[in-house]
């Protein structure tokens, strides 16, 4: 798969229409995969693909807005929906990006793998995909791990990877299926069933841990505002001090801004240095948006986001 990718990139870079190609490369240790910007054919061999290519690279295309050439991008099905939204929200033209789709067989959640292996990810030198298992090499010997133990949450309900109009695909892209009893909204429903005070305590504890490093905002494709509302001084909605109530305002308002736009790529939860389960907050929004307005983000270019649209017969509990 990787050589097919590298040949394609060499070819694409060859005809000069592309400024650079955004993919993944090996980081400082084998289990650490990082984004890679290939500007020259010679660097194409650094590109890799595997179950540890976790980042959603779509947001990087925004940097190509003021370049005259195109930008190439390697993207998983679930992350491609961000391109649809970025085009729909007038941030970039579709023909400015060359999108290379890759068949994805499920991705590893490093935190889960560390718990299961009982060893830190540093020791893991290779993870390979093998049907419904991962071949994990730790210090020389290889062990088999059932995927359902270490899979990223979003991979349990992998949907719509085929809904995107890729320019190229490395092999046949179709949804990754795994039989597991966990349903898409399990975590959300579990929280919803908690009594109110417990939920209140749960979330206040999370918001208290937040150090307001803004990683969830900077990694999210949907947060591309030139000047974020939290950075404004007229009026000052939020203080920069990470006090629990300020953090709560920050997370709730960001959630409202992403309502109907969040494509559930899971990056905000993955990069959070203090492990705040942001995925649950945004999953709850997706559940409501689907139920209330029968809408899913990142599917079509021409649909109108739900919160800026209405139906005459919308649900109306407020009469």
């Amino acid at each position: 798969m990787e050589d097919k990718l590298q040949e394609l990139v060499v070819e694409l870079l060859g005809d000069g229409a592309m400024e650079y190609f955004i993919g993944y490369r090996q980081g400082f240790e084998p289990s650490h995969v990082v984004p890679c910007f290939v500007t020259d054919k010679s660097e194409a061999d650094r590109l890799i693909w595997g179950p540890l290519c976790l980042q959603n690279l779509s947001k990087y295309v925004l940097q190509a807005r003021d370049l005259d050439g195109k930008v190439g991008l390697l993207v998983k099905g679930c992350d491609a929906r961000a391109i649809v939204e970025l085009v729909k929200q007038h941030q970039i033209e579709r023909d400015k990006i060359v999108v290379v789709g890759v068949p994805c067989e499920g991705q590893v959640d490093p935190r889960k793998m560390e718990q299961v292996l009982g060893v830190s990810m540093e020791q893991v030198t290779d993870v390979e995909d093998a049907g419904d298992e991962f071949l994990v090499k730790v210090g020389g010997e290889v062990s088999k791990l059932g995927k359902e133990q270490v899979l990223r949450d979003k991979c349990f309900y992998c949907k719509h990877p085929t809904s995107f109009d890729y320019d190229y695909t490395l092999g046949e892209v179709q949804p990754f299926t795994i039989d597991s009893e966990s349903e898409e909204y399990d975590a959300v429903e579990k929280l919803e069933e908690l009594p109110l005070e417990e939920r209140r305590a749960y979330w206040l504890k999370q918001f208290e841990r937040c150090i307001r490093c803004n990683a969830c905002r900077e990694v999210c494709y949907g947060c591309y505002c030139k000047e974020c509302i939290f950075d404004r001084t007229d009026p000052r909605w939020l203080d920069r001090t990470p006090l629990p109530r300020e953090n709560e305002i920050y997370h709730l308002i960001r959630a409202v801004h992403l309502a109907g736009r969040c494509i559930d790529c899971g990056e905000c939860e993955r990069v959070c240095p203090v492990n705040i389960p942001l995925g649950r907050l945004y999953k709850k929004l997706q559940k409501d948006i689907a139920e209330l307005f029968d809408y899913e983000a990142g599917m079509e270019y021409d649909t109108v986001p739900p919160l800026v649209d209405f139906e005459l017969d919308d649900q109306d509990p407020f009469l």
Binding site: H90, Q91, Y224, C225, E227, V304, P305, V308
Partner: peptide
């Protein structure tokens, strides 16, 4: 206009078509 990021929400929402990108 300095801080507008052209997301288009206002254009969708305006009942009178008074906002354009």
């Amino acid at each position: 206009e300095r801080t507008c990021s052209a997301c288009g929400n206002c254009v969708e929402v305006c009942p009178f078509g008074a906002v354009e990108l």
